[in-house]
Write a protein that binds this DNA or RNA. Sequence first.
DNA 1: GAGTGGCA
DNA 2: CGTG
Length: 217
Amino acid sequence: MTAELFNDITDTSTWQERLGPGSVILRRYAAASDTALLAAIEDAVATAPFRHMQTPGGFTMSAAMSNCGDYGWTADTDGYRYSATDPLNDRAWPAMPETLSELASRAAAAAGFAAFQPDVCLINRYEPGARMSLHQDRDEADLTQPIVSVSLGLPMTFLFGGLRRKERPARIELQHGDVVVWGGEDRLRYHGVAPLKDGEHPLLGRYRINLTLRRAH
DNA sequence: GAGTGGCA
DNA sequence: CGTG
């Protein structure tokens, strides 16, 4: 698929690439607020530390995860679900900082989804070699609400497939600050993360952090 | 009913 | 290394 470019001549630091009728990459959209986002993440994981969850198949996920917001996405041998409490301590997840919810709302609006108010921020941390195999985000109650994904740190190859797993995904390089929004008829597209290549990022060292903002309920 | 993993 |  050839990305259609929408360059805004008044702001050459950020631009959009359309991946489908309901999916857009906002290049470098979050780069200007990266230090505020990282401070918000550090604050959240001080309360709800990164952990490697188990899949229902009994495998350990290679990305370390945490959450903030009214709910958090969790995986264990019983399945995938959203929970109002952190299973590590049965306490509420840390509140979602406004920095994160406002970024997500603005990005969704820029992509054509008005009034997006996330109630979950899943925080995924990848080290070199970590990956996420192709999956759909379908544990949310209202699939008319989009998904907003923010990439920070090491660059990665985003796999963006179709509505069926057998469709071979596009491979899209995402850099620090890139935001991907998908919804509408693209809401259930399969997506994943290719094994992270080694490298060094000025702010994040040998890590990539992905924020996925969702409306769970 | 498998499933965001492992391995051929 | 990418695919299944």
